[in-house]
């Protein structure tokens, strides 16, 4: 069904059902941690997560009705942001740690063995603290993640595709507003909360850009084996940004 035919409750339900499963690394990282071992594990996880992310995107009501190249473009633009918001969500109950997967969590100190990671770790930990303060609800989280995908690029192939995308974004915005409306807040507190949640997204975009540059550097230094899909997604970013 078209997203406009769904009520906000139904849309949220569909977004909840689209949530990807927890992805396990299935390999114990032997101590001491080294730059190569950490990068290897994180890129392996990112590659596995990408496959699930595509399945997730296809389950977002209306996404597959966009042109195929627009779907490609949106996913290429937002994949690291989507992975980062997932990481933040998983880490919210574990102050000082980032939960990359159920079997891989790293503290700031552990992350620091990778050159250039501390800055990115600190930004992710700060964003996680903010999400903790805001007591983000699961319903709000799924809406924000869908928004990241749908808002990742404004340049679509046709004006028809762009207007479809805008209608989709409107439906997700309505769903987010209705999720916020479920909380015991005054109207003023509700729109302040909406603003706070949306402001998180610009931080996530910023960290994602930093992370993308970092991954690109690591690739240039041959520090990581990059898997097919991950490599494709990284190259697309380098191409779009240059």
């Amino acid at each position: 069904p078209q997203p406009s035919a769904l009520t906000s409750e139904q849309l949220i339900e569909r977004l909840m059902e689209a949530e990807p499963p927890g992805i396990y690394l299935m390999k114990d990282m032997k101590k001491p941690l080294t730059e190569a071992k950490v990068m290897m594990s994180l890129t392996n996880l990112a590659d596995k997560e990408l496959v699930h992310m595509i399945t997730w995107a296809k389950k977002i009501p209306g996404f597959v009705e966009l042109g195929l190249l627009d779907q490609v473009h949106l996913l290429e633009c937002c994949w690291l942001e989507v992975q980062m918001v997932g990481l933040i969500w998983r880490s919210v109950d574990h102050p000082g740690k980032l939960i990359f997967s159920p079997d891989l969590s790293l503290s700031r100190e552990e992350g620091s063995c990778v050159q250039g990671f501390v800055e990115i770790f600190d930004m992710l930990l700060a964003a996680t603290s903010r999400v903790r303060e805001l007591k983000l609800q699961r319903e709000e989280y799924v809406c924000l993640k869908a928004m990241i995908l749908l808002n990742s690029n404004m340049c679509l192939s046709s004006s028809e595709s762009s207007s479809k995308l805008l209608r989709l974004l409107d439906a997700v915005t309505d769903a987010l507003v209705s999720a916020i409306g479920k909380t015991v807040l005054t109207f003023r507190q509700q729109y302040t909360r909406l603003a706070h949640l949306l402001m998180l997204l610009s931080h996530i975009r910023h960290v994602s850009n930093k992370g993308m540059d970092h991954l690109h550097c690591m690739k240039m230094k041959n520090m990581v084996p990059l898997y097919d899909l991950l490599l494709e997604m990284l190259d697309a970013h380098i191409m779009h940004s240059s």
Binding site: T55, L68, Q71, V72, L75, L229, E232
Partner: peptide
């Protein structure tokens, strides 16, 4: 974007 296209166009089981 061969792999991405391939994953986007496969029908879910």
């Amino acid at each position: 974007h061969t792999k991405l296209l391939q994953l986007l166009t496969t029908k879910p089981e």
